[in-house]
Design a protein around this nucleic acid. Structure first.
Length: 572
DNA sequence: GCCGTTTTCGGCCCGACTGTTTTCAGTCG
């Protein structure tokens, strides 16, 4: 029994009770209970098993007994009875935006809709539109959502695969017959989502390595297995492919399977113009002349073709080959360059950790400063701060700063950009802060012109230091809102407003495709984890990957500046 | 189902948006 299981059982109960139309406050009690379990300081499983949870706020008699039953027997009769009332596939309906418990219940009871595929059937016939509360527009939106879901099927965000990539790489590198191993493909290129993960190993015994791979502890099922190549599924349905190659082939295989396809095509034709043919195994003279070039690393391969080494993140055939030829490639920002970060939440709004805990976590990561930006009052759902609570947080931060040596908390706010582009706080409040992140959190369906005008108005306020998650997208979940990004970049350049690269792996927003242009326009970037707990600071890793993909150097990223220089930039 | 207490039951966070309605229900943040 793990903490995660306790949490997911309570959350599932809440969902099932919603489907049954139970008292909403009872439902909320289960959700609160799940949150309490999730952030319980200490060994919650042990405490539950020993029935020691009396007096824990949010856990009353009923939840205490249920957690005790779960922790001791591994199951909960109440939960199993509830589950038995609905088909297991019904949960996937909640993935469709616009469908909540009431509508799912109605669809299930009136039309027997218990899965997304059945939902599509009843939408494509006229059955749904005849249901009370549903009309032509709802049918359209549901079908769009199903299409979006299918388009993104079997794609995964970086944080969904990061753990297993590390596990498999460690496993392969530990194999006695493996001398080199790397994860290639779109993972290595730091794409925001990946379809599968390719692993390349250098070995003298390909059969032994592929055999070990398909027997690894991470394997869910084996798709194909051969002498030099194997494919498996790991948890969550992520496909992982292994290529085992010889030392001579390794640099070519690694390069080939890193891609992108477009980059490879450009590289192959470059080789051809120099009288060589390049493939996943070798670089050899064209026309069947004997002898392949001795190349041991990707660096040597690029050099042979007259190019500086191109980092994997840049290999999208988006100007990197020309830049490599001219010696103009940027020196990409790296994790070690970061000195601090902005846009983090605490338990004052919807975060889990205290100011002090966040500060300690930042120092453990070696950061010199940490910006706190809790939600502003209009974000009710996130327990946004009114001015008085914000100002008392500012005082608390000042007090904490007195106790730090060579570390500083910056007092800020993630202030809502209201519908008309006004900010959620007046200037008199904002000027008491060290900095301010302005973000859109509502009315996301405004037409593009209106949204663009709204954001430009917000960044034109001199108190706004940076624009938060500029498109509001949630990867594989929600499309970005309609906004004219070049116009926003221009406005940020004109007003010296920093643009955030939100490093939360659900967002990775602003998208990497815009950063080269933004930097050329003179706009600075802030890589921000949008952390809601101490662990969330680690999202900086994903942000750095995307910044690299966007051609950014440490000069482009303000949080590479040390404490002592950063104040001048943000005006704190 | 939890909490707090004027100790045994009443209150529990709010507002905008959308699509359906024709005054509101459901969803979302």
């Amino acid at each position: 029994m793990t903490r995660e299981t306790l949490v997911s059982v309570l959350e599932e109960i809440a969902l099932l009770l919603e489907l049954k139309g139970e008292n909403p406050f009872k439902i909320r009690a289960y959700r609160t209970g799940a949150e309490v379990v999730e952030s319980f300081p200490g060994d919650i499983v042990k405490e539950a098993a020993e029935n020691n949870l009396a007096g824990t706020k949010g856990i009353g008699d009923a939840l205490r007994q249920k957690l005790h039953e779960l922790a001791t027997t591994g199951k909960l009769v109440f939960h199993e009875r509830l589950r038995a009332e609905f088909p297991a596939t019904i949960f996937e309906l909640f993935d469709i935006p616009g469908l909540g418990p009431k509508k799912v219940k109605a669809l299930y009871e009136a039309l027997g809709v218990d899965s997304v595929s059945r939902l599509r059937e009843v939408c494509e016939s006229s059955e749904v539109a005849e249901l009370a509360g549903f009309g032509k527009k709802s049918v359209e939106k549901i079908l769009e959502a199903i299409a979006f879901r299918e388009k993104n099927a079997s794609r995964f965000r970086q944080e969904e695969v990061a753990g297993v990539v590390e596990q498999i790489l460690d496993f392969l590198k530990a194999h006695p017959a493996v001398s080199r191993a790397e994860a290639a493909g779109s993972w290595r290129r730091a794409k925001e989502t990946v379809h599968d993960v390719d692993f390349i190993t250098e070995t003298g015994d390909t059969a032994a390595v592929t055999a070990a791979f398909v027997e690894g502890p991470f394997v869910e099922n084996v798709i194909v297995r051969g002498e030099t190549k194997a494919s498996i599924h790991v948890a969550k349905g992520v496909q992982c492919d292994l290529r085992a190659v010889s030392a001579e082939e390794y640099p070519f295989a690694l390069h080939y399977f890193t891609g992108s396809k477009e980059h490879n095509i450009a590289m192959r034709s470059r080789a051809l113009t120099r009288g060589y043919t390049l493939n996943e195994y070798r670089l050899a003279p064209t026309g069947g002349a004997p002898g392949a070039e001795k190349i041991q690393t990707e660096q040597e391969l690029y050099r042979f073709l007259g190019l500086d080494y191109i980092e994997p993140e840049l290999r999208e055939n988006a100007g990197e080959i020309e830049a490599a030829e001219a010696g103009d490639l940027p020196r990409l920002v790296a994790m070690e360059n970061l000195r601090g970060t902005f846009h983090n939440h605490t338990n004052a709004s919807d975060g889990k950790a205290t100011l002090k805990e966040m500060a300690e976590a930042a120092q453990e990561l070696g950061l010199q400063y940490l910006g706190i930006a809790d939600h502003s009052k209009s974000s009710f759902q996130a327990n946004g701060l009114h001015a008085d609570r914000l100002l008392s947080q500012v005082r608390e931060i000042q007090h904490l700063n007195d106790g730090f040596e060579e570390f500083r908390l910056f007092a800020g706010s993630e202030v809502d950009i209201l519908k008309d582009g006004d900010l959620d706080f007046d200037d008199e409040i904002l000027e008491q802060l060290d900095y301010c992140v302005a973000s859109v959190h509502n009315a996301m369906t405004q037409p593009e012109a209106k949204m663009t005008e709204r954001i430009i108005k917000a960044v034109s306020n001199p108190h706004v230091t940076m624009l938060g998650h500029p498109t509001g997208r949630l990867l594989l979940r929600r499309e970005p809102y309609a906004v004219d990004i070049p116009a926003v970049i221009e406005a940020c350049a004109a007003t010296a407003t920093v643009i955030e690269l939100n490093a939360n792996p659900w967002r990775l927003d602003l998208d990497w495709r815009w950063w080269k242009h933004a930097a050329e326009m003179g706009v600075k970037c802030a890589i921000n984890p949008d952390a809601h707990d101490a662990e969330g600071l680690a999202f900086l890793y994903y942000g750095v990957r995307i910044a690299r993909k966007g051609w950014l150097t440490r000069k482009d990223v303000i949080n590479c500046l040390p404490l002592g220089e950063i104040e001048a930039v943000i005006g704190a």
